[in-house]
């Protein structure tokens, strides 16, 4: 079952395991420059407001009602990233594993292939949480994504339009599959715990006149690894899938649809960087990154298409030099030496 609470989508599978719960957040962020350079990860600036489409049945396109799901507002050229948070399972001392499919306009953001109700390994068309904490864009090559940037559907910029030649679906599609319970219990057996002192315990505790549909288009490049599934394909409980259609509503019409203002646009990368605020890098040295597919690798960025069309669609796209870099490094055991590229 999928619930919407505090602007987060909560996928829970009580029939599989009482702790099989994954939360997906839609984070506002600044748009990184689309200048050919590889940037670190931009910050999270809070969640986008998310609402049920059914709550605005009289004001959204009938197609949205047919799809069901939820909606959130995005300004043209605004960026977003997805945060995956799986529930910690006490006693097993791990977060419950999930396979997650993410598509934009029904084109997979990891493999570039058309939406499939099946998980595939070659090419991998999903990610695995908790190993994969975030997804910031389209996987264009190994270790590199192009940022998710909202553009009006039909303008020719979205990944869907570049890959299919049509502007039909827009939005963002999510499907979540929990690991089978018996596999989970076999792979992550209960941990024998020593008795904890009390102190330690405390420490742990109206139909739219204008088309509101936005699609996600490839923006600037950033360094992000998408990890290969470390489990077996058969470990996932395929029939327990939860899926949700996330409609992207142009922020210019969000207020007329919902009656509430959309959030302010995010600061520019230049303003943010000049203020000395941090950028991020994340590596998990125990994991292997997937190779990007040629399908997504062949996508043109918003700026590249804009140049072909003679349009300037990304204002304030100046290059920046992030100085304040925060690096998260996971997966190295104590004393292990990291092997880099050489």
């Amino acid at each position: 079952m999928i619930e919407l609470a505090e602007n987060q989508l909560r996928f829970s599978f009580p029939d599989v395991h009482p702790d099989a719960e994954l939360t997906i957040e839609f984070q506002r962020t600044l748009r990184i420059p689309d200048d050919g350079n590889d940037y670190p990860l931009p910050p999270g600036l809070g969640n986008f407001p998310v609402q049920h489409v059914d709550d605005h049945a009289g004001a959204v396109p009938s197609k949205w009602l047919q799809h069901g799901g939820v909606m959130l507002p995005m300004f043209q050229s605004e960026a977003m990233w997805l945060n995956f948070d799986s529930a910690w399972v006490d006693g097993h001392d791990v977060a419950y594993p999930f396979a997650i499919q993410v598509a934009t306009g029904k084109q997979c953001a990891v493999s570039g292939e058309s939406w499939s109700d099946r998980l595939t390994r070659s090419p991998q068309n999903y990610m695995v949480a908790p190993e994969q904490p975030w997804l910031d864009g389209f996987v264009v090559e190994k270790g590199c994504v192009r940022q998710f940037v909202a553009m009006p559907l039909g303008a020719g910029y979205s990944a869907e339009e570049q890959l299919t030649g049509e502007a039909v679906h827009g939005g963002l599609q999510l499907a979540v599959y929990p690991m089978k319970r018996r596999v989970f219990e076999r792979r992550f057996p209960k941990v024998q715990r020593r008795m904890k002192s009390e102190q330690e315990f405390m420490c742990m505790s109206m139909p739219c006149a204008s088309a509101p549909d936005m699609g996600l288009a490839p923006g600037g490049r950033m360094k992000q690894e998408i990890y290969s599934d470390p489990y077996a394909l058969n470990d996932w409980q395929i029939e327990a899938r939860g899926r949700c259609f996330v409609h992207l509503c142009n922020s210019m019409v969000w207020q007329s649809v919902t009656g509430v203002m959309p959030p302010h646009p995010a600061p520019t990368a230049k303003t943010y960087t000049e203020s000395g605020l941090p950028w991020y890098e994340y590596y998990d040295d125990s994991m292997t990154a997937v190779n990007g597919t040629s399908t997504l690798g062949g996508l043109k960025s918003v700026t590249q298409i804009g140049a072909q069309k003679g349009e300037i669609v990304l204002p304030e796209n100046e290059s920046v030099t992030p100085d304040n870099l925060v690096v998260f490094r996971k997966g190295l055991s104590k004393g292990q030496v990291r092997e880099g590229a050489f």
């Binding site: 919407l4 049920h52 069901g68 949700c244 259609f245």
Partner: peptide, 12 residues
């Protein structure tokens, strides 16, 4: 109400 506010899936 939270219990019955499940997100509805439709036809894609």
């Amino acid at each position: 109400l939270r219990l019955v506010r499940e997100v509805r899936d439709g036809e894609w």
